[in-house]
Structure formats: structure tokens, C-alpha cells
Write a protein that binds this DNA or RNA. Structure first.
Lengths: 217, 217
DNA sequence: AACCTCGGTGAACGCTCGTACACTGAAACG
DNA sequence: CGTTTCAGTGTACGAGCGTTCACCGAGGTT
């Protein structure tokens, strides 16, 4: 149950390495414990007990639970950015359909691998402490702006205004967030596949609609 | 600050009426207090103090905070259903554009008028106690099914399968939820109008895309 | 008038909470 | 080698928590 001394060869570790190890253990414990109920209903003492340290030792790493929450948001968005990189790499150029399918595949894989991070973001986006909420909103907005520049490179969007690009990016990110949230609740593998298939259809609708709508305008 | 005796003419009230009054005061207080941090970080004693009753009197109305939460979900969805009714009534048949614009107008008005209810749902959808989460998910799914039957009555969807209707409804409900969440964070009136305008554009994209995509299929 | 119902009271309980403070002992350093 | 640094310890505190119980007194019933 206690994690702080998981790596058995204590002797080979320098002091800063040990501290970092404890820090990681605290982050992992907080992620585990907050999976039911938000950060607000997570106590410093619970975390300390889960990690296997005395409550006051917590302060050697974070000044408060809120500060821990901000560190978790950082950690989660690092893995989200890794996903975005994978999406870009996997994005086959040949057809829209290939691009959409492979992107959704990557998304689903990441949700499965980093389930607790995604769930944490979903929870704290609206229920977390104000600064945590603000940071999450800001990061999502960054995603939207990045996606907008990606879309600008797609064929058929040459004449689009910045605002139009952003509107479409906002729609796609919003739909992706919905998909992630549905994936989090998909218990069986079959249910997951259904969610993915639907999301692909929806993405296709959006892209067809956006391109058709613009050229008809 | 205390609300239980807000209506001055105590004498004219029957006992069940008084009880209902206190119940409403508890619900209102819980909504107010939980606006920062979720239900989980809301204590029975805080609620009692806000209402102006002694902690133990809380049990005369609810067995636990969770049960109170379920009552709040019910209350919130009653007002959401009222909105859906307004959307249907306001839905001008002449063109898609009118229908979309008026629906978004109604949505924005309701978010403004029932802000705390929408914020509560947004918060507890992922951070609330399990049963609260499940109830919210179920209600949203009901919305999707209702919307699917509405869409089926639209011109151009005659040949659609049940699944296709549901996929589009799921997309629209998801986008609406995103819009509501953005409206909740729109501080100035101008920002609100921008969100509405974008949402209208996005809805237009989705409908054009869905109809175009289907007929191309 | 006598009785019963029941929403609200107030004291008391055993917890958990965040935080203050003085401490230890091994790692890092001059 | 002696000194300093500092992650983790252990105790203690006051505050807030959910829940228990016996009690009250106005409202409703007969």
C-alpha cells in the first residue's frame, strides 16, 4: 500500500531523487483517491496515509491540496499534448476518412492508457478549485487555437477567416471532449467501439458540413 | 440570512406548507453553497446554518447530502424540460436558420435565468456522488432520444435509420452542452453574444453536414 | 379538553480535519 | 571530519464533521 520505498535500492538514490519519488507517489495517490469526489473533498491526511508518510511531511512538497491539483493538471496536459502529437503523426493525408479514423483510434487508445488523467480533467473542469478550473479552460483554449492552425492547412480552407477557423476548431474540440467523456463511461469494449464509430460519423458530418457550408456562403 | 421564516404570516400556513417551505430553503441554500466545490465538499452543518435551522433538523427532510443532491437534480431537470418545451414552441418552421436562431435564443435565456441549476448539473455530472452522476447521464440520454424523434420529423430525414437519428441527436446535445458551459463562463454580455453566434454557426454546420453526408452516402 | 404528530431544539459523542512546533538522522558539503 | 541542510517524524491543538438521543411545543385530530 505504501509507495514511497517502492524502489528497493534506496542506497543508490540521491536525496533529490528520493524527494522526486515521494512527490510522484503523492501525485499518484491523489489521482487514485480523488477518483470518487473532486479535489475539494480530498484531504491532506488521506493522501499522506495512502502514500505512507506523516501528514506534516506533505508540506515538504505542496503548500496545499489546491497546489497539488495544479501540478496534476500540468501532468495531465503533458500526456494530452503527447496524444496530440500522436494524432498529428498518425494523420494519414490520403483521405478525410483515414485521417478521422486514425485520429479517433489514437484518442481512444490514450483514453484507455491515461484513463485517470482524463477523468481527473473531466471532474475538475467544473468542480475543481477556481485556479484549477481556469488552468484547464486555458489549456483547452490553447488546443482549440492549435487545431485551428492545423485546419488552415487542410485543402479547401484557404479563404477562411481566423474566426471561421476557430469556430470549427471549437466545435471539433467540444465534440472530442464529449467523446472522451462517453469513452470514460463505456464499460465494455463493445460499448467503446460503438462510441468510437459514432464519433467518426459525427466528425465526418462536421467536416462535410463546414466545407459545404462555407462554399455555399 | 435565515430563510425559513421569510414569509412573515406564519399563522396562515398549515404544517405541511411550512415543511415544504423549509425544504425549498434547504434546496436553495445547498445550490448557493455548492457553487464553489461540488456536493461532496458540502456539509450538512453548513446547509443547516445557511437555512437557519439546527443540524439535526436537516434529517426531517433528507437522509443525507446525497439524497438532497438527487432532489436538486430533479429540480434542475424540471426546469430543463421547461426549456425544451419553449424551444419546441419557439421553433419557427419556415427555415432552418430561424429555427436554429430562436432555439439558441431560448437556450441562452434559460441559462441566464436558471444559471445555478445549469452550473450545478455541469459540476455534478462528473464530480458528484455516483447516483447523482448516473441520474444526470440518464436524463441527458432521454433528451437525446427525444431530440432524435424531433429530428425524424424534419424534412429530408425520412429514410434515416434510428441509429443515424440518434448519432445526430447525440452530436447536437453534446454541442449544446458545450455551449451552455461556455455561456456559464461568459462574463460580459458581449462575450455571451459571441458564444451564441458561434453556436448558431456550428449548429448550421452540423445540420448541413448531416443532411449532405446522408444524401451522399 | 385530551391526545397525538412531528418539525425543530440543544447537548453530547467520537471522528477527522489542517496546522504549529520541536525533533531526528542521514545525505550533502566545506 | 565537523557542519549544515532538510525530508520525514511525533505530539498536540482547536475546529468542524455526522449522528445519537431526549426533549419541546404548536398543529392537527378525536
Amino acid at each position: 500500500m505504501t509507495l514511497v520505498t517502492t524502489a528497493g535500492d534506496d542506497t543508490t538514490l540521491t536525496r533529490v531523487e528520493r524527494k522526486e519519488l515521494t512527490r510522484q507517489a503523492i501525485l499518484a495517490a491523489a489521482l487514485r483517491l480523488s477518483s470518487d469526489g473532486s479535489l475539494g473533498s480530498l484531504s491532506l491526511r488521506q493522501v499522506a496515509k495512502e502514500v505512507g508518510i506523516v501528514p506534516t511531511a506533505f508540506y515538504r512538497h505542496f503548500a496545499s491540496i489546491e497546489e497539488l491539483g495544479l501540478a496534476l493538471v500540468d501532468e495531465a496536459f503533458v500526456s494530452l499534448r503527447a496524444m496530440l502529437r500522436d494524432v498529428r503523426n498518425a494523420g494519414g493525408d490520403p483521405t478525410f476518412n483515414d485521417m478521422i479514423d486514425s485520429s479517433m483510434r489514437v484518442l481512444a487508445d490514450h483514453v484507455r492508457a491515461q484513463r485517470s488523467h482524463f477523468a481527473f480533467i473531466a471532474r475538475e473542469r467544473f468542480a475543481g478549485p477556481p485556479q484549477v478550473r481556469a488552468t484547464i479552460r486555458h489549456q483547452i483554449e490553447l488546443f482549440e487555437r492549435e487545431l485551428a492552425t492545423d485546419i488552415a492547412r487542410l485543402p479547401g480552407t484557404d479563404a477562411w477567416s481566423t474566426e471561421d477557423l476557430y469556430v470549427l476548431a471549437n466545435l471539433i474540440v467540444g465534440a472530442s471532449v464529449s467523446t472522451v467523456e462517453e469513452l470514460l463511461y463505456a464499460d465494455r469494449r463493445a460499448a467503446e467501439e460503438l462510441v468510437i464509430a459514432r464519433a467518426c460519423t459525427q466528425l465526418r458530418m462536421m467536416l462535410v458540413g463546414a466545407l459545404g457550408w462555407r462554399s455555399a456562403d
